[in-house]
Design a binder for these strands. Structure first.
Lengths: 209, 209
DNA sequence: GAATATTTGGACTATTTCGTCCATCATGCT
DNA sequence: AGCATGATGGACGAAATAGTCCAAATATTC
């Protein structure tokens, strides 16, 4: 199965309907990031998206379905961004730029709200197994983008042959997510910087130069 | 202010009352870990603690107060455990034992539920600033235990003089928390192991021997 | 442009959850 | 023992939230 029934609900939508659906999801994505999934009510979503109850229930059978649409949307959004940041990664400098971009973006809100995917994962992992699976898959893809870049670096002789791209990528992801959480809790992005720098140092230890 | 009014409610409790309060908090701690804070209702707590509504509201003015008691209790619990694991840390082998203990403990539940403090932090940080502050302080103390051990290692010549105990401790904490989250999402503790091993490798790079 | 299908607004119901209240029971104190 | 105070059980009320329904408006198709 290359494109499961998940992405597009089978019923066809008019342009107007599709736009309403998009507005609902966009509002829910934002609200659930800022307030958390459980603390976001359907009335919040309805108000923020300028829609009505019937529109919510026209597009989603229940709140759980909306949450899953939010997860899918956010995952696609983050992965799209990260593809842009990582698909041409082939040097240590590139990895530093990747780090800087994430830190800067998080600094804009002083670390508040954490990682868009990480906070969903933390809240939903033990709550909704389907959402958890989607998030696990998204993390895996994100990590895969890192691993692919690291593999290019290894194959081009930037990294030593014994560097394990998958393991290094896991380490980077964990440092990133842990850094997000510490920064969010402390209201200070410093721990995120330190964590990422540790992970970069670890990669650096496999540099050939 | 060394001990704010936070810890002990000013009203005196009989032994029976204190035991009821403890039962309530213990049940809430467990439920909120497994189900999440927002998904845990006061009725869940009432049932699990074998109490009644009036007892809940006798001891806590509202749910928020109970949540804060849960945070304080869990923080004390985790720190008590970590003090035991870290107060005599003075060698790299000790750090490995610390890592192993955490991984083993998390493996018991196959990574589910994540870190007892981390999951509270993620859910409450942007929701309840007082809880966030308590959690930030708890993370800081936890990290302080690590830093103190690393400092002993440095002062005893195990680590090089340029090793920065606070930074290394931050890196370890981030790898731990990130590892918890990835493990929870993937239902696999492997990423937690890899993340911690990366952080340990980083510490190892400061070893003198 | 008539017939059919989708979309919309919002009132309405059902359910869940928080929080109040008070009569009764237990406990500590003198 | 007897009074004061704390503890308990559970019914009850209030509020928030999820979910239903249908008539009216808009779009699509032939």
């Amino acid at each position: 199965m290359s494109r499961p029934e998940n992405v597009q609900p089978e019923r066809k939508l008019t342009a107007r309907g599709a736009s309403t659906r998009a507005r609902i999801v966009a509002a829910a994505v934002e609200l659930m990031y800022v307030k958390g999934v459980n603390a976001t009510t359907l009335d919040d979503v309805r108000a923020a998206s300028n829609t009505s109850k019937s529109q919510l229930y026209n597009h989603f059978p229940d709140k759980e379905a909306l949450v899953r649409a939010v997860v899918a949307s956010r995952a696609e959004q983050v992965l799209e961004r990260e593809r842009g940041n990582l698909e041409r990664l082939k040097s240590f400098r590139g990895l530093v730029r990747w780090r800087d971009a994430l830190v800067q973006r998080n600094a804009l809100q002083n670390g508040a709200y954490g990682c868009a995917l990480g906070s969903l994962a933390s809240e939903l992992a033990d709550q909704d197994d389907q959402a958890r699976a989607t998030l696990a898959e998204s993390f895996a893809q994100w990590q895969g983008l890192l691993a692919a870049g690291l593999r290019r670096m290894r194959d081009n002789g930037v990294l030593k042959p014994d560097a394990d791209p998958e393991q290094l990528a896991t380490g980077l992801m964990a440092a990133l997510q842990g850094g997000y959480l510490l920064a969010e809790t402390a209201h200070d992005i410093k721990p995120m910087e330190i964590a990422l720098d540790m992970a970069l140092d670890h990669v650096k230890s496999y540099l050939t130069a």
